[in-house]
Amino acid sequence: MTAPQSPAPITPVETIRKALTGYRVLAWATGIWLIALCYEMVMKYAFQDDSLGWIAVVHGWVYFVYLLFTANLAVKVRWPIAKTVGILLAGTIPLVGIIVEHFQTQNIKEQFGL
């Protein structure tokens, strides 16, 4: 009788640490650019100042990279799909992405001993 095969190997802790660092940096960058985007929207619609339109483009690209880094971390720490989607959407609400990053970082550090 053969022994049952073990599940897929666990992701090395150093790989998780790198993915977590990238996620943290992009969560903060996305949060800061989202605040800048809110400022740009106020200037555009309240004061008819279109000179800051480039902020929306930068924020869009930063958010896209945030999605990639968050998905990378989610795969490595094996988050359920619903949790992953929730964390991805947290980057669309000012300051929520930064708050979620704080609590997820605490959870991951505790779970994996980082």
Rank of each mutant, 00 (worst) to 15 (best):
I81Y: 04
V77G: 01
P9F: 02
L20A: 06
G60P: 01
G113V: 15
L68I: 12
A46M: 03
L37Y: 00
P4F: 09
W61C: 15
M1H: 10
V77R: 01
I87C: 06
T30M: 02
W61G: 13
Q111N: 15
K76P: 08
V75K: 14
T30F: 01
I32C: 04
A3C: 05
A46T: 01
F112Y: 13
K44C: 05
L68S: 07
A90L: 01
V77C: 03
I87A: 08
F103V: 09
Y66Q: 02
A8S: 14
Q48R: 10
L114F: 12
L37I: 00
V96Y: 06
T105H: 07
Q106M: 11
T15V: 14
R78V: 15
D50N: 15
E101F: 13
G91Q: 06
K44N: 07
V77Q: 00
Y63V: 03
R78K: 15
L26A: 13
A46S: 04
R24M: 12
T84H: 08
K83A: 08
E14T: 14
W79K: 08
Y66L: 02
M43D: 02
I98T: 01
G60C: 02
C38L: 09
E110Y: 10
E110S: 11
L20F: 04
R24H: 10
N107M: 15
Q104R: 09
H59D: 08
A90F: 06
Y63Q: 07
Q48W: 07
Y23R: 02
T70W: 03
P12R: 11
A82K: 12
T2A: 12
T84Q: 08
V77P: 01
V42W: 08
M41L: 13
A3W: 06
L114P: 05
A74M: 13
S51R: 15
L67I: 09
G22T: 00
L34H: 11
L52F: 05
L20G: 04
A90R: 04
V96L: 09
G113K: 13
W61L: 11
C38W: 14
S6C: 05
V96A: 11
V100E: 05
T15K: 15
